[in-house]
């Protein structure tokens, strides 16, 4: 399969990319291409121009500062997985990235590509939501910072405007020290049938000081399980508390059944996976 014909332009700076993007309403930014190219080969997408942004240096860096972690939009999954500094300050990210697809795909796919493609079963969606990530966006009207909660609109739709470009993703620090991503993959596709990102901090008495849980794959959209977090706050992590939080958290998604998995099954799986993720954090 071969994509429909298109023009290709390589941008070496953010300005070049934005100018090229503004010149053609049907242009698309090309990063790792592992979501876009398959869609183009199937002719589900037919951009007239691809603007390759992977050689713009500032989009390819990982920066760790005292108050935030910034990941450039064109940073590839394997770079995140192999970054030792990142493993120290945000193990959750490496944990999630290592279960995306397979080694060959992880050598090409990018963090920003995943965010912009906005697959509703994307592993990183749960991580972005749970860690309160901010999306840095640049366009003709200047820079915008979009919180993860305001990013995902519908399957494959984000609040990014056609003439804007995702520059990178920022994670605020300090992050809760107990963090995990747990995935139940679809047995054939490997996509998350339910993926749960969870972060917790405890006070000196072992009570929950901060909690954040997000679920991807199970419901029609990735979602933040606020009710789970609320149930955990101020509590000691007993079995009952964890069970109730999982029940409440899974209830917040909007589930749709398909030919293989009913809505009820999906919701139950979300509950089970929230519980397992929290249990893992109790032991951490």
């Amino acid at each position: 399969m071969i994509p429909a014909a298109f023009q290709y332009e390589r941008a070496f700076s953010v300005e070049e990319a934005l100018t090229a993007l503004a010149s053609d309403p049907d242009a698309k930014l090309l990063s790792g291409g592992h979501s876009l190219l398959p869609m183009m080969k199937l002719r589900l997408a037919r951009p007239t121009k691809l603007i390759d942004i992977t050689r713009i240096p500032e989009l390819c860096t990982i920066t760790i500062e005292s108050d935030r972690i910034s990941i450039g939009a064109a940073v590839r999954y394997h770079q995140v997985a192999g970054d030792r500094r990142l493993a120290d300050v945000m193990p959750l990210l490496g944990e999630a990235v290592r279960v995306i697809a397979d080694p060959q795909v992880r050598h090409r796919g990018t963090i920003g590509g995943s965010a912009a493609h906005a697959d509703p079963a994307s592993d990183l969606a749960a991580v972005f939501l749970a860690s309160e990530a901010e999306f840095r966006v640049l366009g003709p009207r200047g820079e915008r910072r979009i919180p993860a909660d305001g990013w995902y609109v519908a399957p494959l739709v984000t609040t990014l405007e056609p003439d804007e470009m995702l520059m990178g993703i920022d994670f605020p620090r300090p992050l809760s020290s107990r963090q995990t991503y747990l995935k139940f993959p679809h047995p054939a596709s490997g996509y998350a049938l339910a993926g749960v990102a969870a972060l917790l901090s405890l006070d000196a008495e072992g009570r929950v000081r901060k909690a954040s849980v997000a679920v991807t794959g199970a419901a029609s959209m990735p979602f933040r399980a606020e009710a789970a977090a609320d149930r955990l706050l101020g509590q000691t992590l007993t079995k009952d508390v964890v069970r109730e939080a999982s029940e409440l958290g899974s209830g917040e998604g909007e589930y749709t059944g398909d030919v293989q998995y009913s809505a009820l099954y999906r919701q139950n799986l979300a509950r089970v996976m929230i519980q397992r993720a929290l249990e893992r954090l109790v032991q951490a």
Binding site: M1, K41, P103, Q104, V105, R108
Partner: peptide, 28 residues
């Protein structure tokens, strides 16, 4: 031809990738 099977795997700068999902111009 849909980046699932890996039969097309080659090394780009030493890293295995699926060459059915990479444009030749990207590998320039």
């Amino acid at each position: 031809d849909t980046s699932q099977c890996g039969a097309c795997t080659v090394l780009i700068d030493g890293l295995p990738v699926k060459s059915c999902t990479v444009l030749a111009v990207q590998a320039d």
